[in-house]
Simulated scan of single mutants.
Amino acid sequence: MKTMLCAAAAIGALTAASAAQAQTASDWTGAYIGGVAGYGWQAENDDESIVFDTDLDGTYGDTVRTGSGTDAFAAGFCDGRTYNPTRASACGGDEGGPEFGVRAGYDWQFGNIVAGVLGEAVRTDVKDSVTAFSATPASYTMARELDGLLAARARVGYAVGNTLPYVTGGYAMGDIQHSFSTTNTANTFTDVSEDDDKAHGWQLGGGVEHKITDDVSLGLEYLYTRLDDDNYAVRASGGPAGGPFTSVNGSGTDFQRTSDEFNIHAVRFAATYRF
Rank of each mutant, 00 (worst) to 15 (best):
T141P: 00
V156W: 00
P98N: 07
T124G: 00
R123Y: 11
G242N: 03
F133H: 01
A25V: 10
A20I: 07
F77G: 09
Q21G: 14
R65K: 15
F189E: 00
A10H: 01
I264A: 13
D228W: 12
T183C: 03
L150T: 04
A172N: 06
G34D: 10
Q109H: 03
S26L: 12
E261V: 13
V192D: 01
H200A: 11
G34A: 11
A8R: 06
P137R: 01
D128G: 02
S18T: 14
T185S: 05
G35C: 08
D62L: 11
S49V: 07
P240W: 06
G238P: 07
A8Y: 09
A115S: 05
G252D: 01
T183K: 06
R153L: 02
A13P: 09
W28N: 13
D62A: 08
Y158T: 04
N249A: 06
D71E: 12
V160Y: 04
G111L: 04
D214R: 14
G148S: 02
T86D: 12
V192T: 08
V36D: 03
A25L: 03
A43N: 10
A7T: 04
K211R: 15
T124M: 01
D94V: 07
V160S: 10
A25E: 07
G169T: 01
A37N: 05
E221S: 05
T24P: 11
F255R: 02
A7R: 10
A8L: 08
L227V: 04
W108Y: 14
C91M: 04
S26W: 09
E44Y: 07
A151L: 12
V102E: 09
K198C: 10
A16S: 12
E120I: 04
R144D: 02
A13S: 15
T82C: 10
E48H: 13
D214C: 08
G201L: 06
T3Y: 11
D195Q: 12
C78M: 14
Y232R: 03
C78S: 13
T141K: 00
R65V: 14
A236F: 02
D230S: 14
A266K: 10
A43L: 14
